[in-house]
């Protein structure tokens, strides 16, 4: 951000280094409107293509399908804004689901304990990721890749290589499928609530400000007196909490913890973040963009399914959309540079 300035970052107040400048604010808005435009075009296209697309039950189905990936993507947005990456969220989510299963089904603990236990597992994994990245200086890719494998293995070990069913746990399924707001599955409500929480964290708190600062220029942030290591640990831990929430939601939706699930979910979440305009280089991103990115993915997949497009072609189309999204983004940035 401040590459050409003659003043060193240390002389600047932190707010100036980190606070999104007017230019980047507009840029983010543009990317969002671009993604938002894509979403609207897709919605119009599929409504015209199939009369069954625009029913409330289908829309609610799309939102429900967005919930797990969306919650994962919110947490990952924070990490990606620091120019990091978190590959452990997919299998990590599964481990959290399995831990919740063990607490509730095997140990018959109260609902709240199981839910908090699952979320705490996510936080612990995030903490370890952050610790490895900050203290041991492991590249985030490697640290979280290792955690991805550890979580995958532990999910199988802890569950005894078999699914854990919640059928005897009263009220667990309702966490995802009940409807506090009539007609709207709770999982969707949780998606929106976690989205608001992530938005507030990123835009209204010190944590959010340092997240952008670390992603823009970690050295400068450090020189200006910020303990970046500590904040990175905190950011990864917060991302882990989102992973834990996603784990509880997927377990509630499936009414079971499926230990073999999870691989590939991290890449879908990362794709949603990128489509939403968050830069893999760090320093730039938004939660609203991520939500739109996640919606684009699930609208696209749902629409193609409604149109009975063959599964193999569905993947091709989603891949092309990701390419186009990232390509237009880089094109625009080149023009601005």
């Amino acid at each position: 951000m401040s590459k050409t300035t003659t003043t060193t970052a240390a002389e600047k107040p932190v707010g100036e280094v980190t606070g999104p400048s007017r230019g980047s604010f507009l840029r983010d808005r543009l990317q969002q409107s671009l993604a938002f435009g894509t979403l609207i075009v897709l919605l119009i296209f599929f409504s015209l293509a199939s009369s069954n697309f625009l029913s409330w039950s289908n829309i609610s189905g799309i939102l429900l399908a967005t919930a797990v990936i969306g919650i994962l993507a919110f947490g990952t947005t924070l990490v990606i804004v620091t120019a990091g990456i978190d590959l452990s969220i997919g299998t990590g989510m599964t481990l959290c689901a399995v831990v919740t299963g063990v607490l509730l089904v095997n140990w018959e603990l109260p609902l709240l304990v199981g839910v908090l236990g699952g979320i705490a597992t996510g936080a612990l994994m995030g903490f370890i990721n952050g610790f490895n990245v900050s203290v041991f200086k492991l590249p985030p890719f490697i640290a979280t890749l290792a955690m991805m494998m550890i979580a995958q293995g532990l999910a199988l070990v802890v569950s005894g290589v078999r699914p854990i069913y919640f059928s005897g746990v009263d009220g667990f399924k309702e966490i995802a499928l009940g409807a506090i707001i009539p007609g709207l599955p709770n999982a969707v409500l949780i998606l929106f609530l976690t989205g608001i929480a992530a938005f507030l964290l990123l835009s209204k708190t010190l944590l959010g400000r340092y997240t952008f600062a670390i992603g823009s220029n970690e050295e400068a942030t450090k020189i200006s007196g910020v303990n970046t290591g500590k904040w990175k640990i905190l950011i990864y831990t917060v991302a882990g909490i989102f992973t834990g929430i996603a784990g509880v939601v997927i377990a509630a939706r499936l009414d079971s913890a499926q230990p073999q699930l999870g691989v590939g979910y991290e890449l879908q979440a990362i794709a949603a973040v990128i489509i939403g305009g968050t830069s893999l280089m760090g320093g730039r991103g938004s939660i609203l963009g991520t939500l739109i990115g996640a919606l684009i993915m699930s609208v696209l997949i749902n629409g193609l399914r409604i149109m009975s497009v063959q599964t193999e072609w569905q993947n091709v189309v989603v891949g092309v959309v990701i390419l186009v999204a990232v390509f237009t983004d880089s094109l625009r940035r080149r023009r601005e540079a």
């Binding site: 069954n52 029913s55 189905g61 399908a65 499936l254 699930l261 997949i301 409604i306």
Partner: peptide
Amino acid sequence: IVDIQYGDGDHLKSADIAKAMIQANP
């Protein structure tokens, strides 16, 4: 047989596929 789609045996993916299929074919 109006539609055949593949969910890799993934519970969540298969659920979303089945929902779309039910929506598309009243």
